[in-house]
């Protein structure tokens, strides 16, 4: 359904996106997670034909965003992270305007608008001016607007940010309904738990690169469990390999001359014990260091909001 290949966006010499590759199947709810400035909005803007990529391309339903932007616009419903509404319009006029923007006949719009308002729980606000609506209501109205031409794909940039917990739950319920309607939904957030519950797949983006992609549970273990440890040795590498292999928390040992690298799943205490044991076993260690791994920082950044969610 959605195919992203080598997508790159440069601002001057700064890479907002660096060769992003991603493939999302039809009917998937895809959560795009990354800290602020990771490149989520940039990706979504390119997919919505609002931003020209420096290199690479993306296809939705077989149409290229750079070569067939007119076709793409009919396929997608886009909700930006920050947006304004026309304050002087009433909720139903707002939807009517966008309905006509997609060439939907007036009679059909008249039927569609109450249904959409119903879907986003705004029936009672139909004849209210948009500027008196709360932030959560505006957000839902905008969501209704993205649906007016019955697009196959929804691209929602941080739809839950800035909402209070109740509004967030309401938004989540609507999204579940949309999922059951078979739409392919791309939704971004800088907080992983916010998305975890409603997504089929999660992609984690950091500094313009996709660093993880998979099911929600796979991503969570991948992000949580692993430390990467590098051990530098004076000599007798073989002995050291044998020693570390015996430890139940160690996997994937790689040898590089006098240096060992492996993944470690143990706690800090167990790690201390391992080092002590190694020293006592006379393994000539010159350095024993936990590698600064991107994932760890990313995980910290995107799980900060756990309590709020």
């Amino acid at each position: 359904m959605i195919e992203i290949k080598g997508l790159t966006k440069k601002y001057g010499s700064f890479y907002a996106l660096q060769g992003l590759n991603l493939s999302i199947g039809e009917g998937t709810v895809f959560g795009f997670v990354g800290a602020n400035g990771a490149g989520k909005s940039t990706t979504f803007s390119i997919l919505s034909t609002l931003l020209q990529p420096t290199a690479g391309d993306a296809w939705i339903n077989g149409k290229s965003v750079t070569k067939n932007p007119e076709d793409i616009r009919k396929l997608i419903g886009y909700m930006p992270d920050f947006f304004g509404v026309y304050d002087q319009l009433k909720a139903d006029e707002y939807l009517d305007f966008f309905g006509s923007s997609y060439g939907i006949p007036a009679a059909e719009r008249a039927k569609l608008i109450p249904q959409l308002l119903e879907l986003v729980n705004l029936t009672h606000k139909r004849y209210e001016y948009v500027d008196v609506l709360s932030r959560g209501m505006k957000q839902r109205l905008c969501l209704a607007r993205t649906l007016i031409h019955d697009p196959k794909v929804l691209i929602l940039d941080e739809p839950a940010s800035g909402l209070d917990p109740r509004a967030r739950i309401e938004m989540r319920d609507i999204l579940k309904q949309l999922k059951s309607m078979g739409k392919t939904i791309l939704i971004s957030s800088h907080i992983l738990p916010e998305l975890a519950e409603m997504c089929d797949e999660i992609g984690v983006i950091d500094s313009g690169k996709l660093i993880a992609h998979g099911s929600v549970s796979a991503i969570q273990t991948q992000l949580q469990g692993e430390k990467v440890i590098t051990v530098k040795l004076r000599e007798t590498v073989d002995k050291a390999v044998k020693f570390f292999e015996e430890d139940p928390f160690v996997t994937g040992i790689e040898v590089n001359e006098q240096q060992l690298t492996f993944q470690y799943r143990g706690s800090d205490e167990e790690q201390m014990a391992l080092l002590k044991k190694a020293v006592l076993a006379n393994i000539p260690i010159t350095s024993f260091a936990e590698e600064e791994k991107d994932l760890e920082d990313v995980f910290m950044a995107i799980t900060k909001g756990v309590d709020e969610a």
Partner: peptide, 14 residues
């Protein structure tokens, strides 16, 4: 400036 343009530009209008 009112951040309504982006949405307008993603519609099917030429």
């Amino acid at each position: 400036e009112k951040q309504t343009l982006n949405i307008l530009l993603t519609t099917a209008q030429s």
